[in-house]
């Protein structure tokens, strides 16, 4: 390649990165400018133009894609300002995929495939959001939000009541709970617990942790805020309860893990225990994230 062929190759590579309507025009001008620069350089050193001199000139000009970006800035698929959010959502997807795949006894969930689909959806969602933001720059202005310490008393009260009514009552006495909740319309005989489960460590531990969870909400109700230690306690309780829920479906946990006397009821309950376990574990990880990200701008 002689010097002019090298310039032509460079100009082509720059122009390829530009919108079709501007390629010819920019290519023509860029070629003329580079020829001027080259002529000045060779005049200065009293030499003829050779490929080495041209390459040195082009290196100082920059890589073709970067030069093209100076002529025409294309919007980023994921706006740099939102790349942090993209990373966080990507990691959340990776963790969710790992938890779901680990808890899926049928191994139908492929962690890699789940994650790649998630990444694809995120890229599309962020690209669409960026496009929308560029066309509506004043839409969705920032609004102040409370930090993680904020939990209104009414929410804490509701959480306390709901924890007592649902997990505690339902778990402690499933037959009574179902009879009460269905106003006696649903048959409850199949919900009889096995003796091993009723008196076993798994049920006692789970009930104790549910009670602690209710106590935690009662503490928030009294204090009127969700302090950092409560956030960590919430993460620990949800994580432990999630693991215990999963243990309800594991034969390795022994006879205490056989919940219902009826095998059919056990078969129906197992995926529910696993799903609830997965949700609790993901909730615990979210609690950890919230506490890890907790920022207190005002002096304590």
């Amino acid at each position: 390649m002689n010097a002019h062929e090298v310039i032509d190759a460079y100009v082509r590579d720059v122009a390829r990165c530009l919108p079709r309507s501007r390629r010819e025009d920019v290519a023509l001008e860029l070629r003329s400018l580079l020829a001027d620069e080259l002529a000045a350089k060779t005049r200065a050193v009293g030499a003829t133009a050779d490929p080495g001199t041209v390459m040195a000139l082009l290196r100082s000009f920059g890589r073709p894609a970067e030069v093209a970006a100076r002529y025409h800035q294309r919007p980023a698929l994921i706006e740099p300002a939102y790349s942090h959010h993209f990373m966080i959502w990507s990691m959340a997807g990776a963790i969710t995929a790992s938890v779901l795949a680990a808890l899926d006894p049928t191994k139908a969930i492929d962690r890699g495939e789940f994650f790649l689909k998630w990444l694809g959806m995120l890229v599309v969602a962020f690209a669409l959001f960026g496009w929308w933001r560029r066309h509506n720059p004043t839409a969705l202005p920032w609004k102040p939000r409370h930090g993680p310490e904020r939990m209104p008393r009414w929410t804490a009260g509701l959480a306390f009541a709901a924890t007592l009514a649902l997990p505690v009552f339902m778990y402690a006495a499933p037959m009574t709970f179902t009879h009460t909740a269905s106003f006696g319309r649903l048959p409850v005989a199949g919900l009889e617990l096995t003796e091993a489960f009723r008196t076993g460590w798994l049920r006692a531990t789970t009930l104790a942790l549910f009670a602690l969870l209710a106590l935690m909400y009662a503490t928030i109700l009294v204090q009127g805020q969700r302090r950092a230690w409560i956030g960590w306690m919430s993460a620990a309780l949800h994580g432990a309860l999630g693991l215990l829920m999963v243990a309800h479906t594991l034969p390795a946990a022994g006879p205490a893990a056989r919940v219902f006397a009826s095998a059919e009821a056990d078969a129906v309950a197992a995926p529910i225990f696993r799903a609830v376990g997965a949700l609790l574990i993901l909730g615990a990880l979210y609690d950890v994230y919230r506490e890890w990200m907790r920022i207190t701008p005002a002096p304590r």
Binding site: E29, L30, S32, L33, D36, E37, A40, S60, F61, G62, V67, R70, Y71
Partner: peptide, 24 residues
């Protein structure tokens, strides 16, 4: 034109890289 402008700026004490000036 591009190169003459670059020269004029350099002579005036404001050298600018070619890769910056021409797209500008």
């Amino acid at each position: 034109y591009g190169y003459s402008l670059r020269q004029a700026l350099a002579e005036g004490g404001m050298p600018i890289e070619e890769g910056t000036l021409y797209p500008l």
